[in-house]
Design a protein around this nucleic acid. Structure first.
Length: 833
RNA sequence: GCCGGAGUGGUGGAACGGCAGACACGGCGAGCUUAAACCUCGCUGCCCCUCGGGGCGUGCGGGUUCGAGUCCCGCCUCCGGCACCA
């Protein structure tokens, strides 16, 4: 209250008052029957771990500004809120501190919801959802079954990522630098039977459809996704594996994938992954089984980080068999080596040491021959005997029989076609993207709606029996054991087979929480429907999302999965669009002293503390003013105190205007100048806000308030001041909604500022008759002239010659050329004379 | 290695190819005050100056242009992603 006395601006009084008023009027509930065109403003919904942090505040300040701005543009805006409320943290709290994960989750949701209310976020609370509610996850299960029926959900044995600390498997996307994304523990590999979703079936389309997003998504996000999908073009080539004494024709066929079929003549050996299913059999055939087993044991002891680090030690053993090169019948020694990965391509490669660094390293370590088959264009051909750097560059094919002399891309094409003609090869595309592993050995997640029956095998839970509900947490023992706690719950697992009615077992794994969040934007369209996942009519009205906002950290995982789900649902006929998010804006992270804020680092700045000192408007405005929204913002660099001062100043300007009354005063010039400032601001702020340039939009609003202050000092009063302040209030309302609402009402309005229209500028007011134009002599500014806007070049030149400093620089020199950019610039180019 | 992005005052950051540093933060000075805080006003890229002005300045080196932070070429540094992916 002391602040208020001093400044006339008391957010602690204003903010709760308007929040109540908005809520009473249900101002922000999206109506289905509205005549205004719909606008779907969506932000990435939060995970309920404790209270909101500064990152949330920035994200929500952006999301809310977008929604409120579009409402001022005349749209019927849907700006919903919900919680991504399944997940590991809740269960870890249960394991470590004996807390009920459900209780923990819903308590946190209430805490966050209260903080959101205090921030004045214009959410449509009537559409609120939680992914951990049975009413929601029933439909997550339904979608899973849709995918299952389509053959896009399957169970398979696989070497999976295993976090020994979280005691669960992880998706590839959840492993960073070999460590678990949640607890940083080193991830190990474990052979397990797991559920996968066939995202690889959509790889091509996930890549191709990005062209629809080219202008509306951040380039950075598109690049990250392209990288992740990792498309490469090459050829599948069939080799035969034979014992030395065996005829080539007798050998077993094995396919390799290569991006460089043009280098087939440069292959000098052949490598398979240690896990290759045939490796041991070949070692047996080649009499090398002992060496192979010893090698496998060495590999097993290595950590994955060691194994997958680039430039590793190139361990490997010969298997004693030979691979027959289909282009020339050459017999190449076959090795097993751990630099070849089972998970990419076919787990077998042809090794071309002259043109691949990894192969060259291996060749040098094992004394294998090197043969150059591509001669570089302008450099000297490398010496195969001594080279240590593979020649990966372009050039002409050599040492390759009939293909000699061709440029390498053409060789690539020709060799592949010739192989294809002989049935020994084909053009092939490979992706780095793997299928999405979605099962988790966890309690607090959406149960996978499958029943295992000894007689019938995998049986989907019938739709009418959904949801498969989680048992009450009080009936479950939360001990880390590498198996879902559900497996210990007899009442959950034992079930009659829906098909044969015999005894059967429920699947006890639950789904990755990214499944929950891959379709929530559809549920928001009709959250109360209990007979369908989403109402087709409502989805047609709101989807695709007009503007999605959220953190860059979800550039790959969530956004890729959501795109995948949308395409799958499209193919199944449930939605009629293929991309869920028309426009995307990512905001940066909030740091403190250059590091991410975290409890463990002790550098946490709590939103609540800032709100209790300065209010929600100040916090929100500070976040948006800090810099470009997509950049990281360091809390040490921003000044809520400065923002607070500005909002106080603005309040005083309004109060001063109200006190002065509506009678016009001030000189014509001063009044015209204020009006110009107002309309300049309207023109500028509108463009900036539409382009997410909130930092400059706020700067322009500050300029406008500075102009009002100056005008008031100059004795201006009445209409021009009112016009400026009203425009400022409306334009400020998406950013600092409470103070904007307060000022709007102090200016005498009854209706909410939130339902006004964005002001329009009058272009006529922006033009001035007389402009100040800089005058350059030889490119350097030497003075300025005041001329009529439409002044001709000779008038400008005459005026420039009258400027003493300009005249001085022209002295003794002849005018060679005059550049006159009307109203902007006069440049006089001279030559000695 | 491959793919993105960025280098501008003490700081965060602005700048359709046209007066670099908008708007802030911080700093300095003045007013108000018994005093301080608050508030208001002024100054604030660096260097020189006879106070008129002059020189330099957007990571580095070239180029295009009357004119380049901005466009082109070649580097350097930093950040992010991918990576024994054949």
């Amino acid at each position: 209250m002391t602040d208020a006395v001093r400044t006339g601006y008391d957010p602690h009084e204003i903010e709760p008052r308007w929040q109540q008023w908005w809520s009473d009027q249900r101002l922000f509930e999206a109506r289905e029957d509205a005549t205004a065109p719909p606008f779907y403003a969506l932000h990435m919904f939060p995970y309920p771990s404790g209270d909101l942090h500064m990152g949330h505040v920035e994200a929500f300040s952006l999301a809310d500004a977008v929604a409120r701005y579009q409402r001022l543009q005349g749209y019927e805006v849907m700006n919903p809120i919900g919680w991504d409320s399944f997940g590991l943290n809740a269960e870890n709290a249960a394991i470590r501190r004996g807390i009920d994960p459900k209780q923990w989750t819903y308590d946190n949701i209430e805490t966050q919801a209260a903080t959101m209310q205090r921030l004045g976020l214009a959410w449509d609370w009537s559409r609120r959802l939680h992914t951990s509610d049975p009413e929601y996850y029933r439909w997550t299960q339904w979608i899973f079954l849709q995918l299952y029926e389509a053959g896009w959900a399957y169970r398979a044995d696989s070497e999976v990522n295993w976090c020994p600390s979280c005691q669960t498997v992880l998706a590839n996307e959840q492993v960073h630098d070999g460590a678990c994304e949640y607890c940083d523990t080193e991830v190990t590999k474990k052979p397990l039977t797991q559920w996968f979703l066939k995202i690889t079936d959509f790889a091509e389309r996930l890549l191709d459809d990005m062209r629809h997003l080219e202008d509306t998504w951040p380039q950075r996000v598109l690049a990250l996704q392209r990288n992740w999908i990792g498309r490469s073009e090459g050829a599948n080539v069939t080799f035969r594996i034979a014992a030395p004494s065996q005829d080539a024709e007798q050998g077993e066929e094995v396919v390799v994938y290569t991006t460089r079929p043009d280098t087939l003549y440069g292959a000098t050996f052949f490598v398979v992954a240690p896990e290759h299913p045939q490796a041991r059999a070949w070692a047996q055939a080649g009499g090398a089984v002992e060496a192979f087993d010893a090698f496998r044991e060495r590999v097993r002891r290595k950590s994955d980080v060691e194994r997958e680090a680039a430039g590793g030690d190139k361990d490997g053993v010969p298997l004693g068999v030979e691979a027959v090169n289909p282009v020339n019948g050459e017999r190449l020694p076959v090795y097993a080596a751990d630099y070849v990965l089972m998970g990419y391509g076919t787990g077998a490669i042809m090794a071309v040491p002259a043109h691949d660094q990894r192969d060259l390293d291996f060749a040098r370590a094992h004394d294998l021959p090197v043969r150059v088959v591509v001669a570089p264009e302008d450099a000297q051909a490398p010496d195969p005997a001594t080279m240590t750097e593979a020649a990966a560059g372009e050039g002409t094919t050599v040492n390759s029989g009939p293909y000699d002399g061709l440029p390498w891309p053409e060789t690539k094409d020709r060799i592949t076609r010739d192989l294809a003609a002989r049935g020994l090869g084909e053009f092939a595309v490979n992706y780095r993207l793997r299928d999405w592993l979605v099962s988790r050995q966890r309690f607090w997640g959406c149960p996978i709606p499958i029943i295992h029956c000894e007689r019938c095998g995998q049986v989907p839970v019938p739709e009418e029996e959904l949801p498969v509900e989680l048992p009450d947490p009080s009936e479950v023992a939360f001990t880390p054991g590498g198996e879902s706690p559900l497996a210990e719950h007899e009442g959950f697992t034992s079930v009659d087979c829906p098909r044969c009615e015999g005894p059967a077992q429920r699947e006890t794994d639950t789904m990755d929480t990214f499944v929950d969040s891959s379709w929530y934007f559809l549920r928001y369209c009709s959250p109360d429907r209990d007979d369908v996942a989403f109402d087709p009519e409502a989805v047609r009205r709101w989807m695709p999302v007009d503007q999605y906002t959220g953190g860059i950290e979800h550039a790959i995982l969530h956004l890729l999965y959501a795109r995948f789900f949308t395409k799958a649902l499209h193919d199944l006929g449930h939605v009629d669009f293929v991309e869920p998010f028309t426009r995307l804006k990512s905001q940066g992270m909030v740091l403190k002293d250059g590091a991410a804020m975290s409890k463990s680092k002790g550098n946490l700045v709590e939103p609540k503390e800032v709100v209790s000192e300065f209010g929600a408007d100040t916090l929100r405005t500070t976040m948006l003013f800090a810099g470009p929204i997509e950049d990281d913002v360091d809390w040490s660099d921003v000044s809520p105190a400065g923002t607070f001062r500005w909002l106080s100043r603005l309040t005083r300007l309004v109060d001063a205007h109200v006190a002065a009354g509506e009678d016009d005063a001030g000189t014509d010039d001063a009044r015209a100048s204020l009006r110009r400032a107002t309309h300049q601001a309207i023109a500028g702020v509108g463009g900036d806000v539409a382009a997410f340039k909130y930092n400059t939009a706020i700067a322009k609003l500050m300029e406008l308030s500075n102009a009002v202050g100056a005008a008031q000092r100059d004795g201006v009063a009445g209409a021009p001041v009112r016009e400026a302040l009203e425009a400022a209030a409306v334009m400020l309302s998406p950013i600092a909604p409470h103070v904007a609402e307060e000022l709007w009402h102090r200016l005498g309005h009854e209706q909410s500022v939130a339902v006004q229209r964005w002001p329009e500028h009058d272009p006529a007011l922006l033009v001035t008759d007389i402009v100040t134009v800089p005058v350059q002599v030889d490119g350097k500014v030497r003075g300025e002239i005041e001329v009529a806007v439409e002044a001709a070049e000779d008038e400008a030149l005459a005026a420039a010659r009258d400027v003493a400093n300009v005249a001085r620089h022209l002295e003794g020199r002849a005018l060679a050329k005059t550049i006159w950019v009307p109203g902007r610039m006069l440049n006089l180019v001279t030559k000695p004379g």
